[in-house]
Design a protein around this nucleic acid. Structure first.
Length: 876
DNA sequence: CGCGGACATTTG
DNA sequence: AAATGTCCGCGC
């Protein structure tokens, strides 16, 4: 038997499976999805088994055997292995990168090089091999080295060289002559957690009998035995020591007598272990909820792959529909995945799921320690849970019988991973659900236009899809003849041009479900648009309009709570000299530095460069230097000035980095220990506090001014979300939106809670300007330290893309650029970008791959990098 | 002729 | 990615 293995080297040349022989004794253990250690050239590497076969069609003598299997159970399921291949084809990344993204960081390989005593030397005296006659040829230090290694069994080379720093040569010599041999080890970053546990050997009666036998001075040992006679065991050693206030030696004494056992037991680090979740029962559904639930649960029961787009206004009870749909899925013996944006994965959210499904739920989010994360993941793998709730990467939960995948707040851009693999969890979810004949529910109050477009595609589009598949094939042919002509592109590249697995490349139309009413018929809050230009004209230069000021004052008086949103993006806190106009810039990036009050430093967002706060202008030595823009810190200061005694909780990157701090602030606010919650985006998501009756957006339109075609969509979504925070309970809510663009359709539609009019307007504009969802984008960014080479290469790449696109005519593919990226330099590297705009039905990943492949030499020779982003969310 | 360094090749 | 192989210029 042979295994196809993808090795742990993310490079173009190694981006294919290598064959390995499976030795007889490993045959039971090697499966598709196994993690294995394999010899690769002179090295030993970790790899993933992606296929099994019983012969190779070349000289089998070339095939090396698998050295080891890393896990008791394969960490990946076969469907995930296929999905990784699909991801690498769709998002143009190395297959190993996709595979690595699917397992927790704790399982990422750590390579260690050790030395040990060679087998031929193992049983001998140190000097046996090194004697002539009576005389040892070993230097004393070499003798010492050998003894040291012999004692330890094996020693990491680094450690050994450090210990015998002055005698590196001796170590080398011993290795050269074969006394010491190198062993390459592959270790996990993180081991499973083990604790010491105490277990008695006999029944209570026997324990008491033994206790009697003990001499009087062994009072403590006696106590331990009596303890076990009465209590359930096993018990943690540490707990036992605590409880009886005894030392470990007491227990050890009993263990030495053979009366009890101290064992290492594997435990799960459970971040929610200390918490009690009150069990909840399904709530009665409103008619709308019931209809939606019926559609979803019917599809689940039918085991039919179907994508639903659930558009429900804030407060319409989407979560209850999710919960009951999941119940249907569980009742069927299948598993469910719930994706939630990182910042809305709040304790409140977790509580709702743990409350309903108890310890059947695993939770995965980035604030867990690597160990906790690994343990939650293992619960999934070991089938101890059937529901996982988590951020983006939870879509890779190693379940085997998925019935339902829910993506809450599906419009959130955080579902797109910005590093390789640059996948979109929503699209991966649809692909994965297809593998399992599972149902997908995309839930949002403000669906993304991409998902909306999915519901608009009619069956007539199916014909188009089939046509495109055909065109895709003809492209492959075209690429082949092209490569033959040039003789420069390998067959492997061409064969990767089109996905040929079993995952559907084009999804079937989505079904739209809507919920327009809030639970218990509570009205949506009234939204006031405030024209800040008007305020300025009338002499109000503060960041609060007069009406918002009054509204805040009123709530403080009535002891109701307030949420204030400051949209920080585009509202940077840059440092500027008011005399000469100097702005502090990062020396390595084309971006201004932002001011951080907590550390009294100015810092670059992109490369982390930081310097001390400046009080004197470095350019003109003026002292009129100040930080501009309205950071949350400044708003907080302003609030305490305007409303003395106001209790403000500020939530932003500065105050929520510490583990659990996010949770702490929200609990405080929920307990009404503060009057006002001030924050960035993170206060807009999913929070639900009964006493919040006022929500203010201080600068609603900052996003609007960004050079991004999704600016209006983002603005609309944010305002709708934040407005949904008010008046969710008995007290009615009110929303104030401050803006310099009060006539903009995104702001007007949001203030009227009118998704449809926004969507219609935006769709028309997108279609007119040939933007997504009607056209799709691929962003190619090139970076290098020098502009001339960069420009030349970017232009050559664009030309090559155009040339290749020609062969696809008449399919509409447009190559835009190259132009300098919006952030033209990061970490001392200049950046240029090309944009490919094409109609969704064209399959062009192969084309891009091929074009980029012809610049491999430049990439290698000049250390130029080319990165590809399929369906980019942020155009920077 | 032997050496070091740049560069290309290979990894099953 | 990293180890190995190849080639070339250089000093002797």
């Amino acid at each position: 038997m042979y295994a196809k293995v993808i090795v742990d080297v993310p490079a173009k040349q190694t981006n294919r499976a290598f064959d390995y022989f499976i030795p007889e004794k490993l045959r039971e253990w090697v499966m598709v999805g196994s993690r294995v250690g394999v010899p690769f050239g002179p090295r030993k590497l970790q790899g993933f088994v992606v296929g099994l076969q019983d012969h190779v069609d070349y000289d089998p003598a070339k095939v090396k055997p698998i050295a080891e299997v890393m896990d008791l159970y394969p960490p990946l399921t076969p469907d995930l292995v296929e999905l990784a291949s699909w991801i690498s084809n769709t998002y143009l990344c190395h297959e190993i990168t996709a595979l690595q993204a699917m397992i927790p960081g704790a399982l990422k390989a750590k390579y260690e090089r050790h030395v040990k005593i060679s087998d031929t030397m193992a049983g001998k005296r140190n000097d046996e091999k090194h004697t002539i006659g009576q005389h040892s040829m070993l230097l004393p230090v070499q003798d010492e080295i050998i003894s040291y290694v012999r004692e330890k069994g094996s020693v990491e080379i680094e450690t050994l060289l450090q210990k015998f720093a002055a005698d590196g040569g001796s170590v080398k010599q011993l290795m050269l002559e074969g006394t010491l041999v190198e062993v390459q080890l592959i270790k996990d970053r993180m081991a499973t957690k083990k604790i010491l546990t105490v277990i008695p050997h006999e029944e209570p009666s026997q324990l008491l009998e033994w206790a009697e036998q003990l001499p009087g001075r062994s009072a403590k040992q006696k106590e331990v035995l009596q303890y076990f006679a009465e209590r359930p065991y096993p018990i943690k050693l540490s707990e036992l020591l605590n409880e009886l206030s005894i030392s470990a030696s007491t227990v050890k004494g009993l263990a030495d007598k053979g009366w009890l056992d101290i064992q290492e037991v594997e435990v799960f680090r459970d971040p929610y272990a200390e918490r009690y979740f009150r069990r909840t029962e399904p709530l009665p559904l409103m008619p709308e909820q019931q209809q939606v639930f019926d559609r979803i649960s019917q599809a689940v029961l039918d085991v039919r792959h179907q994508v639903f787009l659930l558009q429900g206004v804030t407060g319409s009870g989407k979560t209850e529909v999710y919960l009951q749909s999941i119940q249907t899925c569980l009742d069927q013996g299948r598993e469910a995945i719930v994706l939630v944006p990182e910042i809305s994965l709040t304790p409140q959210m977790v509580e709702r799921f743990k409350g309903r499904f108890g310890n059947l739920v695993a939770v995965l989010h980035s604030r867990l320690s690597p160990g906790e994360r690994y343990d939650e993941w293992r619960k999934i793998m070991l089938k101890q849970v059937s529901v996982v709730i988590g951020a983006r990467s939870a879509i890779f939960a190693p379940f085997t019988r998925i019935g339902l995948i829910i993506i809450d707040e599906e419009h959130e851009s955080s579902y797109k991973q910005e590093e390789s693999p640059k996948y979109h969890a929503r699209d991966v979810a649809v692909a994965r659900a297809g593998q399992h004949q599972a149902v997908v529910v995309l839930g949002s109050a403000t669906p993304s236009l991409e998902s909306m477009y999915g519901t608009m595609r009619k069956n007539s589009d199916r014909a188009l899809e089939q046509m495109s598949t055909a065109t895709g094939n003809s492209y492959t042919a075209a690429a082949k003849s092209d490569s033959a002509a040039r003789g420069s592109i390998t067959a492997a590249t061409t064969s990767q041009a089109a996905w040929s697995g079993t995952i559907q490349q084009q999804a079937a139309p989505f079904e739209l479900l809507t919920m327009n009413n809030r639970v218990e018929g509570r009205p949506l809050p009234r939204v006031h648009i405030i024209d800040m230009r008007e305020e300025l004209r009338e002499g109000n230069r503060s960041m609060f309009s007069r009406s918002l000021y009054k509204a805040i004052e009123e709530r403080l008086h009535k002891k109701e709570q307030i949420v204030l949103l400051l949209n920080r993006r585009g509202y940077s806190t840059f440092v500027m000299c008011r005399t000469c106009g100097y702005v502090a810039q990062c020396p390595h990036c084309d971006i201004s530095l932002t001011y951080h009050q907590s550390s009294r430093a100015i810092r670059c967002h992109y490369c982390g460069y930081a310097e001390r706060e400046v009080t004197v202008c470095p350019s003109c030595t003026s002292e009129h230097i100040r930080h501009f823009g309205t950071g949350t810190q400044r708003v907080e200061e302003e609030l305490s000035k305007l409303f003395p005694g106001i209790r403000v909780i500020r939530m932003d990157v500065d105050t929520t980095t510490e583990k659990g701090s996010h949770e702490k602030w929200l609990t405080m606010f929920g307990n009404r220990q503060a009057d006002l919650l001030l924050g960035t985006q993170m206060v807009a998501k999913g929070l639900d506090f009964p006493h919040v009756t006022l929500v203010g957006a201080l600068a609603a339109d900052t996003v609007l001014n960004l050079p991004d075609f999704r600016a209006a969509e983002r603005t609309f979504q944010l305002l709708t979300q934040v407005a949904g925070r008010a008046g969710r309970h008995e007290l009615p809510g009110e929303v104030y939106v401050q803006t310099y663009a009060p006539e903009h359709y995104s702001i007007i539609s949001a203030s009227r809670h009118d998704y449809n009019s926004f969507k219609d307007k935006e769709m028309t504009l997108r279609k007119f300007h040939e933007y997504p969802p009607f056209h799709r984008l691929i962003l190619i960014t090139l970076s290098h330290e020098q502009i001339p080479l960069l420009m030349r290469t970017a232009e050559a790449l664009a030309a090559r893309l155009k040339e290749l696109a020609q062969s696809l005519a008449p399919l509409p593919i447009e190559i835009l650029g190259p132009v300098a990226s919006p952030i033209a330099r990061i970490k001392d590297r200049y950046r240029f970008q090309c944009m490919i705009k094409y109609r969704g039905e064209a399959s062009i990943s192969g084309l891009v791959q091929q074009a980029v492949a012809s610049f491999e030499d430049v990439e290698r020779q000049h250390k130029l990098t080319i990165s590809i982003d399929v369906d980019p969310q942020v155009l920077m």
